[in-house]
Design a binder for these strands. Structure first.
Lengths: 337, 337
DNA sequence: GTAGTTTTTGCAACCGGTTGCAAAACTGAA
DNA sequence: TTCAGTTTTGCAACCGGTTGCAAAAACTAC
């Protein structure tokens, strides 16, 4: 069906090697020969079979893009950035959806069968052990939005979630709130765990501040809305740190349903700074996570690893910052209440 | 580096064919032999190279998943459904992001180089000519969310966008609105064009109803918000049909910013019935597009085509229905004003 | 024109599998 | 035991490319 190198060789009246070399840059071939081959392949509509060549070169330019975050709209942007960034470098993302799958075995096997050159794990919820499984299988791997460690076993690019939790706690305390709560994503997510741990550790230095916590079932609008709906029946926190903007926005919706208002009745701080957070009628105070840098840096790291697979594992951590908007009460010197 | 069939053969003391046949179901091999081979491969950690085998079998189980809708959150669900559905059938999605790319040539070439077994174009904005390019290149293709035609040149699965436009117009007219407007997605999108054409054609039968139209720059919250922001300064429509829920929700936000209220000041009807549309504080009246069925049906069609590539092109069109919520004024017998 | 050097070319083996074919091994009936 | 029929096995060619190597061709300088 498709035109092969052999057919081009015959038509051009040259050896198969000559055709191959025409399409391999850096190969030794004369201009005259190259022109002959190019003419023939143009006439036949030939284009080389990337998979066949991968057999001998050992490179497929296939990159496994593994994720389980298919409900947080921020990940649509993440996929957009990843796919375009990879494409721009001639790499092809083989997408693996891990929803409902927690162990790496199957994905590792599958991606090895397809001889991917590397794997990007794009997930804020999978544990480090997950990406380690790829490393152990000899596949270059970078974990984007993964858990920060000072002694990384695997390349990690993201933010320091513990610090972001601290930052949120500090911000709430500075505003004078003294009954505050953590509304996290799924408890099994490493990002939730770390944000929570930073949040509570920071509060140890403020023993007068009362704190509670709960977890939404997923990083999604609806989960945030549902969880806040429940909390409003019982909880009495003055302000919440929501582990993600989607949770905040879902929560906001639940608060409005109850006829309460933000920030007058309840304060809210999110994390991510997604586009919607900036809308006038949402106007969410939030912690900015530099998605674009994280993705680009992950891609660069991946590309670097293709040349140097045994590169020493590295953690690339980007700083977060508080984006002041309108869902917290104004900064005050003294504690409120 | 990775274990090959040959090494397994040596270890098991059998021929290479025997190993190959062990991993090919339907192949003629005795139980005793199979056990020997399985033991050896287990010991070595062998798993067959899918790409090498594709060379002789002509099947890669790779499916190109081509889209340019990386800003409409509904597509995160679409990707979720596609990737899981394909995975469940042993197929691997090779994701192609077409943002900023309007001609099919490059994608066709690239996907042929990777010998994909088929291509799913998941886009409501690409013209039919785009998917035809794949068919012309001899690649099985199904266009999901594509333009309906009674004489399809290519397999199409989706809704009848023209009819959905008519449905929206009818709904608005029935509610008694007589100054109504169309707020579409990008004008270049086929779905926008068709919804608009259905909308206006329906209004031909209601000559007393005044109508205007405009187009957002993208199918995104922000584009809807921006466009409605502009319209509120000039336009005087009583109700809008927004070509997508994201536009409606963006528009809603702009309306609230102006201090106007829905449906008292302005009526709104969307399309898609995304999850957020059901939130109490949004409560959007909208036209339901059966995403899940469309995706599943697309996958089934794709699978069928793998066995029967020359299948006659088919259009699978799913019906839409109006979901009554709170952004239109109540049904009335007489025209309002 | 010759010898030495560099570039270009084709041969043939290889990448990691599959598969048609004929020989080998097994089966069961006579 | 023999023999036809069936199943299992290995050989060798093939899938569509790449690449080391040596021969051929093209330069270079004398």
């Amino acid at each position: 069906m498709a035109i092969t190198l052999k057919e081009v060789a015959i038509r051009a009246g040259v050896s198969r090697s000559a055709v191959s070399r025409t399409f391999t840059d850096g190969a030794s071939i004369s201009d005259r020969m190259r022109r002959k081959v190019e003419k023939a392949s143009r006439e036949l509509g030939y284009s080389p079979n990337a998979l066949a060549s991968s057999l001998t070169t050992g490179r497929t330019k296939l990159i496994g893009l593994v994720s389980n975050n298919f409900h947080n709209p921020i990940f649509l942007e993440v996929f957009d950035l990843f796919t375009r960034g990879l494409q721009d470098r001639g790499l092809r993302p083989l997408l693996v959806n891990l929803t409902d799958e927690t162990n790496p075995e199957n994905s590792v096997r599958m991606l090895k069968q397809y001889s991917v050159d590397g794997v990007v794990v794009a997930s804020s919820t999978l544990p480090p052990g997950f990406s380690k499984a790829f490393r152990d299988a000899g596949v270059p791997v970078v974990h984007s939005f993964g858990r920060y460690s000072s002694t990384p076993q695997v390349h990690v690019v993201g933010i320091d979630n513990v610090e972001s939790g601290r930052m949120a706690a500090r911000t709430l305390v500075d505003r004078g709130y003294n009954r505050i709560a953590f509304l996290g994503g799924p408890q099994s997510a490493t990002s939730t765990q770390d944000r929570f741990s930073g949040f509570t550790s920071e509060l140890l230095t403020h023993p007068t501040v009362a704190t509670t916590h709960s977890f939404a079932e997923a990083y999604s609008f609806d989960a945030g809305r549902a969880e806040m709906g429940r909390l409003l029946n019982a909880d009495t926190a003055q302000a919440y740190f929501c582990g993600d903007d989607v949770l905040s926005i879902g929560a906001l919706s639940a608060i409005e349903d109850k006829g309460l208002s933000v920030p007058d009745d309840i304060g809210l701080i999110g994390l991510n700074n997604m586009e919607m957070a900036g809308w006038e009628n949402i106007n969410l105070t939030t912690i900015h996570q530099p998605i674009r840098q994280i993705v680009n840096s992950s891609i660069e790291l991946m590309v670097a690893m293709l040349d140097e697979p045994d590169r020493h594992p590295e953690a690339r951590i980007f700083p977060c910052s508080v984006i002041e908007r309108g869902t917290l009460m104004a900064l005050t010197k003294s504690a409120a209440e």
